[in-house]
Amino acid sequence: MSRLIAFAAIQGGYKVVSQAEGALNKALATYDADTKVGFPNTGYFLPVIYSLFGIKVETLEDLQEPLDIARGLLPPHIKGKNWLPFLGPLLDAGMAGIISYEIIEALRYLNEPDFYLHAEDPDIENGKLWTGAADDTIFRKRGVEFVDGTAPGFAAIVGSAPDAETAKMIIEDYQQRGLYMFLAANHNGTSVIEQLIEAKVQIGWSTRIACFGPDISSAVFALGFANRVAMAFGGVQPGDYRKILMYNKERVFAFVNALGDVGTEWGVAAAGCVNWGFPTIADTDITQILPTGICT
């Protein structure tokens, strides 16, 4: 286990948890504590938090409990020599980051209700490229494909390719393999979504290219989708975090494709995905994580 990647992920965990705490404190100073929060048109509340901990987040004040869990998961910073394996602290920091990212996105829905387009496909003509979290209508239609074998898995693609033609080549290769592509984040001022538009590639759920959001926090929608598959089609009960994660590792085949520099905020997201058994493939040099039975 690389000390460097563990250091980056843990630093990222502290940074993202602090961002979520700041955003929640600001929201509580702006709105009443019983103000409704959540993702649109879903009975799964905030699906990562609900599936792992059984916490039904419905109001602003409900966000405090999962945020406290995230803060409690943060391991000590790596200093000097460490004679213990880095895997445990890496996984804990990653989970803290994922919880915090879902809270950040829930607060975005509250503060900017029109930020995401509530539709299957983006409205390119009007500049509405990002469709946010999949609602239950989309989930019921698409989620079953991960169970009946219609969809072999998904690639969560973050960042941007070196150019539009490379982005098109990557996407078309994944399409030929039947994969869904969950797109989020940006790099060097652009995103794969914008590159695909430039290359005249049709995007949206109808072509298995989900346009989640422009920031790394929106990548959490992919994990929420996967956990809903475990609950809806795998019969896993909310709060049974071990079965949720094992179901994903064994039944939902997915990976992260990081296109761009993997800094601390991307690093903690990648570390979080290791909890699900989802490895990260990058187009930059990052250290391998190869603990047997986690990502192989």
Score class of each variant (00 low, 15 high):
residue 86 F to H: 09
residue 275 N to T: 07
residue 115 F to I: 03
residue 105 E to S: 07
residue 81 K to P: 00
residue 242 R to F: 14
residue 227 N to A: 08
residue 264 T to W: 06
residue 147 V to P: 01
residue 243 K to C: 00
residue 104 I to N: 10
residue 49 I to R: 02
residue 64 Q to D: 09
residue 169 M to Q: 13
residue 203 I to E: 08
residue 167 A to E: 03
residue 268 V to D: 01
residue 291 P to A: 11
residue 34 D to Y: 11
residue 211 C to T: 15
residue 3 R to P: 02
residue 8 A to E: 15
residue 13 G to H: 06
residue 33 A to E: 14
residue 44 Y to A: 14
residue 129 L to V: 12
residue 208 R to W: 01
residue 269 A to T: 15
residue 86 F to Y: 15
residue 178 G to I: 01
residue 81 K to H: 12
residue 80 G to H: 08
residue 98 I to M: 14
residue 66 P to E: 09
residue 49 I to N: 07
residue 32 D to Y: 09
residue 2 S to G: 05
residue 271 A to Y: 12
residue 182 F to R: 07
residue 48 V to P: 04
residue 272 G to Q: 04
residue 24 L to C: 00
residue 227 N to P: 02
residue 41 N to E: 14
residue 39 F to M: 09
residue 222 A to Y: 02
residue 42 T to F: 00
residue 155 A to C: 12
residue 46 L to F: 00
residue 144 V to F: 12
residue 276 W to S: 03
residue 185 A to Q: 05
residue 203 I to Q: 11
residue 151 A to V: 14
residue 70 A to C: 13
residue 248 N to A: 10
residue 236 V to N: 04
residue 290 L to M: 10
residue 197 I to Y: 03
residue 236 V to S: 10
residue 278 F to L: 07
residue 279 P to W: 02
residue 44 Y to N: 11
residue 68 D to R: 15
residue 5 I to W: 09
residue 190 T to P: 06
residue 43 G to D: 15
residue 227 N to H: 13
residue 220 V to E: 08
residue 132 G to Y: 03
residue 41 N to T: 11
residue 186 N to H: 09
residue 186 N to E: 11
residue 288 Q to I: 11
residue 99 I to C: 02
residue 63 L to M: 15
residue 213 G to W: 08
residue 294 I to W: 13
residue 122 P to S: 10
residue 71 R to L: 12
residue 61 E to H: 13
residue 241 Y to A: 15
residue 106 A to L: 03
residue 100 S to K: 01
residue 110 L to K: 06
residue 65 E to C: 02
residue 226 A to G: 05
residue 278 F to G: 05
residue 193 I to Q: 05
residue 147 V to Y: 09
residue 208 R to V: 08
residue 87 L to W: 14
residue 164 A to R: 13
residue 98 I to Y: 06
residue 56 K to I: 08
residue 167 A to N: 03
residue 279 P to Q: 02
residue 264 T to P: 02
residue 112 E to Y: 13
residue 221 F to M: 08
residue 31 Y to R: 03
residue 105 E to I: 02
residue 14 Y to P: 02
residue 140 R to H: 14
residue 128 K to M: 04
residue 85 P to R: 03
residue 76 P to E: 14
residue 130 W to Y: 14
residue 159 G to A: 10
residue 144 V to A: 04
residue 28 L to R: 09
residue 188 N to T: 12
residue 132 G to L: 04
residue 186 N to F: 04
residue 290 L to E: 14
residue 248 N to D: 15
residue 156 A to G: 04
residue 202 Q to M: 13
residue 160 S to A: 15
residue 244 I to G: 00
residue 109 Y to V: 09
residue 59 T to G: 01
residue 276 W to A: 05
residue 260 G to N: 00
residue 225 F to P: 00
residue 174 Y to P: 01
residue 229 V to G: 11
residue 236 V to P: 07
residue 267 G to E: 06
residue 73 L to P: 04
residue 218 S to F: 10
residue 156 A to P: 01
residue 75 P to T: 11
residue 65 E to A: 11
residue 9 A to G: 11
residue 269 A to H: 09
residue 52 L to T: 06
residue 176 Q to D: 13
residue 173 D to S: 14
residue 86 F to L: 09
residue 89 P to G: 15
residue 275 N to I: 12
residue 168 K to Q: 05
residue 192 V to K: 03
residue 159 G to M: 11
residue 17 V to P: 00
residue 244 I to L: 06
residue 73 L to F: 12
residue 175 Q to I: 08
residue 68 D to M: 13
residue 232 A to D: 15
